[in-house]
Design a protein around this nucleic acid. Structure first.
Lengths: 367, 367
DNA sequence: ACTTATAGTGAATCATCAT
DNA sequence: TATGATGATTCACTATAAG
């Protein structure tokens, strides 16, 4: 448990579960102090009556007090208020995730847009083992929807593209995620052996969210903490968490759960980094270091074009002068060109990409 | 082409494409005369600049005039107006489908609820072949959302449970549908050979909608008819259609298309709808799902090599990082390697193949 | 005829840093 | 804040050309 000071005198209560109404508690925290918010608000399910399975057993529906709203207008007002408090807490480069079902997600999404959040993706959690539709009156409700939004249009945000790509066996992560619902030993029970929370989310879902859109050390807030899935996964992944939960029974289960969670090793938390995170190497260094000689000719990888190197690192082609990027773009008639991967030099009769030389320099810089 | 009299003197122009603004045209039709509305309204994409693929080719974006709105408020007003006109046309036991993306669907969903429609399901169209995210800045936008709603709470509606179950190989149809985008021969071209419409929907999608939620002889209205996919599938399936489209070029293509459609010519549709790929299990899921732990060591089946797991599903060995396949290939000096059969984990002192875990996941996905 | 290589394309809110 | 330079980035599928 840590207290951190942010922007003045106010303290940020890290790795704790705060007791109280989420709006009031959020308003007591310092502005622009949170990197990511994950929110699983009440879905406003509007269930009518009870539901039985074909064998006449009773379906244990979500009918808790906290999911009751008198009207769409009441739900909208509630949504506006907590989103507004959440937005105040986010750093300018922060982001938010909200999960919901068709009962509430359209209202939540519209409210997000109305408040100036900028939707980055909607993500479908496709449940591999949903509850069937027992009456056969509709389609099996087999998914939930998450919205990922930055604080504002044009706002920066964290996206670990390569890490998610690695999680997905080398192809881009898509907006539909196939994951099982929370069951088995992961599903927390209360003292009587009943499920401790009606809508406990699987840790796999939070794992993907936090690996993809936070970095180690980031502060993650969950204003509807429940039994603490967000906190548990944040702790495993070396992120700081703040939970808000007003139900004492949920807090008790979550505290017990979090005490048992261990953080993964530091090395295991490192993920595949994007190339942009690597140090920039000016092309001129290859000449300064004697890896390439002024006067030497470079060739396009497709062997169709060549250009001559000058001492200042610019290229001279048949009818064009400029940087490796500019000359490549000119030859290809393209709006832009990555000169590092476009140009090759000749060694022992072979064409070798100049990017190999950049990688050598980067390796030296690390060692 | 048929004219049918409904509730008094007004005539219903069946199996025709009506020219004009959809709101005005809908207001000219008799109330409570339509069984099902399928609507594919403008998405209000709000694209900023141009986008190039990594090979520098230009992405042909949807930048048509009909998709331009000055603000969310303007889009909301448009949505309210056409939904209100649509609702008047629906029989009490009628229903509506609306398709959209995260740009507009939350606003459409909230408007539907505000007008008294009752959402029955939201359905996710998971595209088997979406366009990638070329810049690696977000998740691949791989789905669109459809909302299916009855005219009002408690309203009756048509749902052919057994027909959809049969389409789904004997198990309940779920709320996520995997279907390819419209391409190849199905994609209509104009006189110049360019795509006739930027957002033509696949017939497989409409096939499932109309089989599931209409009966033969029902009247289906599409107020944003475009090149007439709704009409074409309705005609094939023996439903009556009414299309509204204000762009002359789209109407021309649709007329030509519809003239060629024959009723009950379903064979081609069944083929595209039943195409289903073997589920691929990304290795990263074993970590997300807690079956393996970041920091844990994996061993080659021959026990000669080991490597440590990271949170994004990559392996770190003595002098190599990468996927299970890459690191295995590196250790064996082989051009490639099936990491699933190469690597083992330790449980109770025994080495167990990671492929056992994949088989567990596959079994869950089927059941 | 058959296989392999190359080109094209799809509802997309698709960059960042130094000056 | 605006401008210019740097340089990072793609999956599944279809159609056509080449071998």
């Amino acid at each position: 448990m840590t207290m951190t000071r942010v922007k003045g005198a106010e303290a940020l209560p890290l790795n704790r579960i705060l007791d109280g109404d989420c709006i009031e508690v959020m308003n007591s925290l310092p502005a622009e102090s949170i990197d990511l918010i994950f929110a699983d608000p009440p879905y406003n399910l509007q269930l009518r009556g009870t539901l039985h399975r074909p064998d006449n057993s009773l379906v244990d529906a979500v009918d808790d007090d906290w999911d009751q709203f008198s009207s769409f207008a009441a739900y909208d007002a509630f949504t506006r208020d907590w989103l507004s408090a959440a937005r105040r807490l986010l750093k300018p480069q922060g982001a938010i995730w909200v999960i919901g079902s068709y009962h509430n997600i359209f209202r939540v999404g519209a409210a997000l847009q109305n408040q100036g959040f900028w939707i980055l993706n909607d993500v479908v959690w496709r449940k591999s083992n949903p509850m069937p539709n027992f009456r056969g009156k509709r389609l099996t409700n087999a998914h939930e929807t998450m919205i990922w939004a930055s604080k504002s249009e044009g706002g920066k945000y964290t996206f670990n593209y390569e890490a998610l790509k690695a999680l997905n066996e080398g192809v881009q992560m898509r907006s539909d995620w196939v994951l099982p619902i929370c069951s088995g030993h992961e599903r927390l029970k209360d003292e009587k052996g009943d499920k401790a929370h009606p809508t406990q989310k699987p840790e796999s879902l939070l794992h993907r969210v936090l690996v993809g859109t936070t970095n180690p050390g980031d502060v993650v807030l969950d204003p509807f903490f429940g039994t603490g899935t967000t906190g548990a996964v944040a702790k495993m992944l070396g992120r700081e968490y703040i939970g808000i939960e007003r139900e004492e029974s949920y807090r008790r289960v979550a505290e017990k759960r979090l005490a048992k969670v261990r953080k993964f090793d530091r090395e295991a938390l490192e993920v595949s980094a994007s190339k942009r995170a690597e140090p920039r190497v000016p092309f001129g260094q290859l000449i300064e270091r004697g890896m390439l000689r002024p006067g030497e000719e470079l060739y396009s990888a497709n062997r169709r074009f060549k250009a001559r190197l000058r001492a200042d690192g610019t290229l001279v082609g048949a009818d064009v002068k400029g940087s490796i990027h500019q000359v490549g773009a000119h030859y290809e008639g393209a709006p832009s060109c990555n000169g590092w991967t476009y140009w090759c030099f000749r060694r022992d009769g072979q064409l070798v990409s100049i990017d190999v030389l950049r990688q050598q320099i980067r390796a030296e810089m690390q060692g």
